[in-house]
């Protein structure tokens, strides 16, 4: 059960997306996500879908893994689709029965929202598929570094994120170990009602907290021993440098988004 969780789901590869500068990747991902919600006409939405498909194709991430990232949100997609179908009114009425009105605008909204959510999830999961968690936090730290002016501890925040990601697999292992130990003492984790099930978690959660806190102290000591003092005056082993290809991607994305806006402008908006 617990092994199905995939956070920091990096997929090893050497595609164009893998090689792109992580900072640029984050910025372009954000730009595309905003662009998704600009699409209001059918051609612009189609272009957005085409961009998404293209990105998946060049990422060298297997199609199966991309599907896996959509699976958890399937319920949300269906749910918002149904809500939009029944509650958005406008355009031609196609079907009417007591309180139910189904209109053309309702159908379009439902379809648009579904496609938008799927595009959004696929694009953002491509970011985590093609960037290692350390690269990602590194890039976030640099993108946020202007905030230092306002005395926001950007480096500390980024370090916290890195550590949190680093310890997810360790904690999963720990949970496995503790729950085996308690099962060996006859703990019954699977049967019983909701309250019994929650109660049955106490013998796992308490040791987990204790060992997490102990681990945190040990880690802090280890960092102290290696003279860690935070971000001030700290240099980097890996320098990030924007390459020519990164600027080309920026340019292409800008052109595509401009195209989207134009397509929006010249075709009828359906929602």
């Amino acid at each position: 059960m617990i092994k199905d969780i995939t956070i920091g789901q990096y997929f090893l590869g050497n595609s164009f997306l893998h090689r792109m500068d992580a900072r640029m990747k984050i910025i372009l991902t954000f730009a595309l996500i905003i662009a998704i919600f600009v699409c209001k006409s059918i051609p612009s939405l189609l272009l957005m879908v085409a961009i998404t498909v293209f990105l998946v194709a060049v990422s060298s991430v297997p199609f199966k893994m991309v599907l896996k990232s959509i699976k958890p949100i399937a319920i949300i997609v269906v749910f918002t689709g149904i809500l939009n179908l029944f509650y958005v009114t406008g355009g031609k009425t196609l079907f009417e029965w007591s309180f139910i009105h189904i209109t053309t605008k309702g159908i379009f909204t439902a379809v648009f929202m579904a496609v938008r959510i799927i595009c959004l999830v696929v694009i953002s999961s491509l970011l985590t598929y093609t960037t290692t968690p350390t690269m990602l936090t590194d890039a976030i730290e640099r993108l946020l570094s202007p905030l230092k002016v306002f005395k926001i501890p950007v480096h500390t925040l980024a370090m916290m994120m890195t550590l949190a990601l680093r310890f997810i697999p360790t904690l999963i292992e720990e949970i496995d170990r503790i729950s085996n130990a308690q099962k060996a003492r006859g703990a019954d984790l699977d049967s019983g009602g909701l309250i019994e099930k929650v109660k049955a978690l106490i013998p796992i959660i308490v040791p987990l907290f204790v060992s997490s806190i102990r681990r945190a102290y040990e880690l802090a000591d280890a960092m102290d021993c290696r003279c860690y003092v935070g971000g001030d005056g700290r240099t980097r082993m890996k320098q990030m440098k924007l390459k020519g290809s990164d600027f080309v991607s920026l340019l292409v994305t800008a052109v595509l988004i401009a195209g989207l806006i134009l397509l929006n402008h010249y075709f009828t908006k359906v929602i």
């Binding site: 085996n180 130990a181 308690q182 060996a184 308490v206």
Partner: peptide
């Protein structure tokens, strides 16, 4: 599970109760 008792490596990391007596009683109570 009850007839074959298994004591894991570093078993002290499974302690969780308020008192030692209660913790030892966890197995028999189950």
């Amino acid at each position: 599970r009850f007839k074959v008792g298994l004591c894991f490596q570093y078993p002290e990391y499974q302690l969780f109760e308020e008192t030692v007596a209660k913790d030892i009683a966890f197995g028999p109570r189950n």
